[in-house]
């Protein structure tokens, strides 16, 4: 499309997302998709089936898929947190970032201006930009942690007293919310919080891919961040 007006230039590249991070990203995306769909149908089940109960296990399978994907999500997050410790510095970004550093907030402000069309150029980052870090940390990481805690608390209600999920989560989390029904409601509400994150995340990733000076979507596949020009990398 742009070939007509684009001069020949080189595209520098940095290796950002190591294999475990990329693998996690896509497995996790699949798990969340399964969780959101099955979760929705747990709250509002499909039309009733007639015939013998022993012939079907529809709700059972839906719930099973939900719990299986729940385990994937939970152990995925644990594995990802481990990689944040042993992996490269970019693997740490969504968990830990220095919010006391003025340049972080400066970068966040600049990025906001870029999204409000108040500045012509975004800065260049090899990892995530400060706004992305902000969203991923606060909306995604904490949203997921919340879902895992409330999810396993409800799971423990089914597996019952003495099960690990019951002892680890149900025992304190249900009284904290008051009763089980509110835990269901919050678990349900935060699903929408995560869906909203996904909408923004997918939009921004594609938009950045097109409009910014770095690759986004392909980086999560290949691991390499390529830059569309040779300007300096801002980072923070």
């Amino acid at each position: 499309m742009t070939t007509l007006s684009t001069k020949a230039h080189s595209e520098p590249a940095v290796y950002v997302y190591e294999a475990p991070v990329r693998l996690w990203h896509w497995i996790n995306a699949a798990a969340i998709t399964v969780l959101a769909i099955t979760g929705y149908f747990i709250g509002s089940p499909l039309p009733s089936l007639s015939g013998e109960a022993s012939d079907y296990y529809l709700m059972g399978y839906i719930r099973f898929a939900h719990f299986a994907a729940g385990y994937v999500l939970a152990f995925g997050l644990l594995g990802r947190a481990y990689w944040a410790i042993v992996g490269n510095s970019h693997a740490r970004e969504i968990f830990l970032h220095n919010i006391l550093k003025p340049s972080y907030w400066g970068g966040l402000w600049h990025e906001l201006k870029w999204y409000l069309f108040l500045t012509k150029e975004p800065r260049k980052y090899s990892g995530h930009n400060p706004l992305a870090i902000f969203m991923m940390h606060w909306m995604y990481v904490w949203g997921t942690v919340f879902m895992i805690f409330t999810g396993f608390a409800m799971y423990g209600e089914g597996t019952g007293e003495g099960s690990w999920a019951h002892s680890l989560f149900t025992v304190w989390l249900i009284p904290l919310f008051g009763q089980s029904q509110d835990v269901h409601t919050w678990h349900h509400l935060v699903m929408w919080w995560i869906i909203i994150f996904v909408i923004i995340h997918v939009y921004v990733a594609i938009r950045e891919d097109i409009m910014s000076r770095q690759s986004i979507v392909s980086s999560m596949i290949s691991g390499w961040r390529t830059f569309k020009d040779e300007g300096k990398i801002d980072n923070d």
Partner: peptide
Amino acid sequence: NADEVGMGAAAVVGGAVAAHAAIS
């Protein structure tokens, strides 16, 4: 209920995203 609240919020965000994409 949670779905009505969530879908409402998602619709607002979705609308904002679409508008943002158009301006972009």
